[in-house]
Simulated assay, not measured.
Amino acid sequence: MFASAAVSPVPVVSPAGLHEVVTWGASAHRVGDAISDRSYRLIVRTSAAGTGVRIRLSNAFGDRPLTFGSAYAGIRKEGAALVPGSNRRLTFGGDRSVTVAAGETVHSDLLPGRLAAAAALVISLHVAQAGGPATGHAMAMQTSYTTSGDHAAEEGAAGWSEPTGSWYYLDAVTVRATPGTGAVVALGDSITDGWQSSTGLDRRWPDYLARRLRANDSTAIKGVANEGISGNKVLADGAGQSALNRLGRDVLSHPGVRTVFLFEGVNDIKAHSNVTAQDMIAGYREIIGRTHAAGKCVVGATILPFKGWRQWDAEAEAVRREINQFIRTSGEFDAVADFDRALRSPYDPERMLAYFDGGDHLHPNDKGMQAMADSVAIDSLTCHRRAA
């Protein structure tokens, strides 16, 4: 079983009545070079509670097969140390090791036992054979650990000498949850990824939203997957694949997703690449259409003001305002979260209010992140759609 703080007896619910829901996610992109005989101890925070834990490992950006020699799931005590007795082996089709082809992902078998919401889950991986590009998530805003050799089974911290601010290979964790339980996926850039929030304290705006959902008994939306990538754009690849190109893998592939929360566009605008508001609206419409075709709702979030950032100018501001007007008034989204109004200065609406500014005039601080999450109407995360 998992740690006592995260474990309770499995409820008497027919397995047939349970369904799989994403409880944690992080967007995959290239994170340097893959290394053989390397272990990773990855710290993640769950959202939805459930049984039957399953992880997804990604070699999406690899150019050759990648072999995991072992994988374990446990509960964090502190640092790299686990709660004694919590570390349990994961298997893949009954085997302890698994090889993932270039460009592919693999799911573990279900791990019996109950995992609580807001648990500090630790996934420990040993990469036995690797080379070429590594797949992961560079800006985790969370300290994980890495080391040479196979230390995945160890619960102590002694073998884990090297901290890392990235997650490697792991891109999703799911649980089996009670009927009706759903999830929301935040598709975004560095603001969603959490830049300027406090490292290791889970103060990204999707984290604050997950806390609100956990405390609200009126909603069945309990899972939150953060699919933000720093520097990401809606229309063009660069810092990771564009939102359009990664929508299927990073968002629609997750089980139990009811709603996609679309909060991207500032990087397209401030790049001065001649992107117009109509270009952006066309990109939004494609995301809306594909998401609706999959039977999921779409919440559109307005783009935050960024006057004071080095790339701001009146032309970019005009595009931002036109896009925000579309988000607010078009009726094409199932709901709107007006982050712009929540964080802008009443004295200069082209700027973020100083109280919420992380210091660079683009990224909110912890208070700004919380204000964004608090501005979301919980009932807006639920609509009724069927896949086309």
Rank of each mutant, 00 (worst) to 15 (best):
A120I: 00
W195M: 12
G248H: 13
L362M: 13
R258E: 13
L187G: 05
F92W: 10
F339T: 03
A5I: 12
T276G: 07
Y169E: 09
D95L: 10
P255W: 01
Y208N: 12
V257N: 10
R385M: 02
V127E: 06
R30Y: 00
G200H: 06
G265T: 04
S4M: 03
G256R: 11
R176W: 09
G132Q: 10
A81K: 13
T143L: 12
I323F: 14
A48H: 11
M1L: 06
A158V: 10
T199M: 05
G165D: 13
G188V: 11
A140C: 03
W195G: 02
R54Y: 02
L201H: 13
A102Q: 08
A153N: 01
A5W: 05
D237E: 06
G103K: 05
S197W: 01
Q196Y: 13
A215M: 10
Q142S: 07
C297D: 11
M369G: 01
L42T: 15
T276P: 05
I123W: 01
S148A: 14
E155L: 03
P305S: 04
A172E: 10
S330G: 09
A172G: 10
H272L: 03
G165F: 04
P255I: 00
Y72F: 15
D33Q: 14
G17N: 15
A158D: 14
H29P: 01
A387K: 07
